[in-house]
């Protein structure tokens, strides 16, 4: 068997009907979404409160009972975890529900493909938008962390770009998965995947509570890498090993984006 017969490589590199997939015109997708959301700013605002409420209830409330975790106050420990979760949630929400709606009912991608836009522009544009939404929440949350004294190091300046990376990786994979969904029922699978990841990836307590194998399992999940990065940055515990987290998320983003574009091609350019 040659490598080109592997489904993944075929998906990534296979012959394309209309030349390259593009991507450079992605900003115009963001322009379109800004036009739409200008009127829906209240809906945008709601996403901001979720991590803040979590921080208040779990960080501050629960923190009173737990005392220090991993050598820092519990709020300081849990806040970067919540930051990662909110970056993930913001991106996933937009790249799954909204993209599914546009794919199935909107026909707006069909309209776009009648113009010089290509599938790569659409995929990249939608993923970037999904992540941009998350970025607004992340920035606000990070500001709250700074004001609340939860940030221990100047390395935290890098936390914002990292939330972008997290958002992009989850947005890309979210959009790729959405392209395989047939009905709204399939979205239960999204919840099924996100919920345990949210609870068990180390947002709320160190992985040291797990046995070796559970730990290895958790470390294969993407959210763990996002949390690890953000926590190391805000607590000022930076080390070379973090590059591995970055690499993981970059690869995830790349594969997600290419699969999403290929799937759009498959679904729309029939």
């Amino acid at each position: 068997m040659t490598t080109t017969e592997l489904p993944l490589t075929r998906l990534l590199l296979g012959r394309r009907a209309f030349g390259p997939m593009g991507g450079a015109k992605a900003p115009v997708l963001i322009e379109r979404n800004v036009l739409v959301y200008r009127r829906l700013w209240l809906m945008l605002a709601s996403g901001f409160f979720e991590p803040v409420f979590y921080l208040l209830s779990i960080g501050v409330g629960l923190g009173k009972l737990t005392g220090a975790v991993d050598g820092v106050p519990y709020t300081d420990y849990v806040a970067p975890g919540l930051l990662a979760v909110s970056a993930m949630n913001g991106a996933v929400f937009d790249s799954t529900f909204n993209v599914f709606f546009k794919l199935k009912y909107g026909r707006i991608y069909d309209a776009m493909l009648a113009t010089p836009l290509r599938v790569g522009d659409i995929a990249l544009g939608e993923i970037t938008w999904a992540q941009l939404r998350g970025l607004i929440y992340s920035a606000a949350f990070l500001a709250i962390m700074v004001v609340g004294g939860l940030v221990h190091s100047w390395w935290a300046l890098l936390a914002l770009p990292v939330t972008v990376l997290i958002g992009f990786a989850f947005g890309a994979v979210g959009m790729a998965c959405t392209s395989f969904m047939r009905s709204w029922q399939d979205f239960d699978l999204v919840t099924l995947a996100l919920m345990p990841m949210f609870l068990f990836s180390g947002a709320f307590y160190p992985l040291s509570v797990y046995s070796h194998w559970v730990r290895v399992l958790i470390e294969t999940l993407p959210l763990y890498h996002g949390i690890d990065l953000l926590r190391s940055l805000t607590l000022g515990r930076v080390h070379v090993g973090l590059l591995w987290d970055v690499l993981y998320l970059v690869v995830m983003a790349g594969i997600g984006a290419v699969v999403a574009a290929r799937r759009l091609e498959r679904l729309l350019l029939t």
Binding site: V28, E31, R32, L35, V36, I108, A111, A114, T115, P116
Partner: peptide, 30 residues
């Protein structure tokens, strides 16, 4: 495609945008 105009069999207007905005954003796609 930059030199074609297309009216597809089924309308593919952007329902989340107003009439004027539909033309605006479509022009931006070009």
């Amino acid at each position: 495609k930059a030199r074609l105009g297309v009216v597809p069999q089924e309308d593919s207007l952007d329902l989340e945008l107003r009439v004027r905005e539909n033309l605006l954003i479509y022009g931006r796609y070009f």
